[in-house]
């Protein structure tokens, strides 16, 4: 159980990205966060593993206060939270295998990992993760030699290496075409069915309807909706996205 309690974030330049946001995420949920560009989705996701320090509020996970964790405790918490990014955030010049292995850094021996030495079982697990996302044959290619969809699958494999209990996905398909979007989200859905909680921000409402078990909507840093995707009617939609908004569909597959 993840509890977001009265979280606010004000950036040093004065931008108030989150305003008193609270909600709970039960284990096993596929929670989708929606909202206009700039509404604070990325900020919220990064507050959960404290890549961004919330200014106020608490985030409690399985009775542990993430916001109060010491640096060492925080690293222990982070290693069980996988993260997937819109821009994939792979180290482009490194091999796919190294990128996947780096998901294991939170568990690895701090010294041998600095020398780039990995235990056999980690390498085996990395190959398994790559097989799972269907690109084992690319293990020794450079990351930037892969297509966008393949890179995002490496990103998922990297998150898998953490044996995560929670995956944070920040617009994981925003840089991909609709067909690829579904294939990537299906991997996440699969992991979710295996018991991993997923919190994912998405832009396209049809994807939200297809994958979300529950939806939280942000507008200018304020939570304006929480509920199932079906509850988002025309009025709610206008409230979240503004009067002029038109629903755009990613694709109807």
């Amino acid at each position: 159980m993840l509890r977001i309690q009265n979280v606010s974030k004000t950036y040093p330049n004065g931008t108030q990205a989150l305003k008193n946001v609270s909600f709970d995420v039960a284990d096993g949920e596929f929670l989708v966060i929606i909202g206009l560009s700039g509404s604070g989705k990325s900020t919220l996701l990064r507050c959960i593993n404290r890549l961004i320090e919330p200014t106020e509020g608490k985030i409690i996970w399985d009775d542990v206060d993430i916001t109060a964790a010491s640096p060492a405790e925080l690293r222990k918490i982070r290693r069980t939270i996988g993260m997937v990014f819109q821009q994939f955030n792979l180290v482009k010049r490194s091999s796919v295998l190294t990128n996947v292995l780096s998901g294991r850094l939170g568990y690895a021996n701090p010294w041998t990992s600095l020398l780039g030495i990995w235990p056999q079982e980690d390498i085996a697990q990395a190959m398994q993760a790559l097989e799972r996302v269907g690109i084992a044959e690319k293990a020794h290619s450079r990351a930037d030699a892969l297509s966008g969809g393949q890179q995002q699958r490496v990103g998922i494999a990297r998150a898998l290496m953490q044996n995560p209990k929670l995956i944070l996905a920040d617009e994981p398909v925003a840089s991909l075409d609709p067909v690829l979007s579904h294939s990537i989200l299906q991997y996440l859905e699969q992991l979710n069915k295996e018991g991993i909680t997923v919190i994912c921000s998405l832009h396209f409402l049809d994807l939200v309807h297809r994958y979300a078990t529950r939806v939280v909507a942000l507008k200018d840093g304020v939570k304006v909706f929480e509920g199932s995707a079906k509850e988002i009617d025309r009025a709610k939609f206008k409230e979240i996205y503004g009067e002029e908004a038109q629903e755009v569909r990613a694709a109807s597959l």
Binding site: N49, L51, R75, K76, I77, R78, R79, T80, I81, G82, M83, F85, Q87, F88, N89, L90, V91, K92, R93, S94, T98, S102, G103, R104, L105, G106, Y107, A108, P110, S113, L114, G116, G155, R158, M161, Q162, L168
Partner: peptide
């Protein structure tokens, strides 16, 4: 981006430098 991603895996500062900064 990669720095953020490596930090998110629970890596310590040296590991972030080794895996996200140095390769770049």
């Amino acid at each position: 981006g990669p720095i953020e991603a490596i930090r998110a895996t629970g890596a310590n500062w040296l590991q972030v430098v080794r895996y996200a900064v140095i390769p770049q």
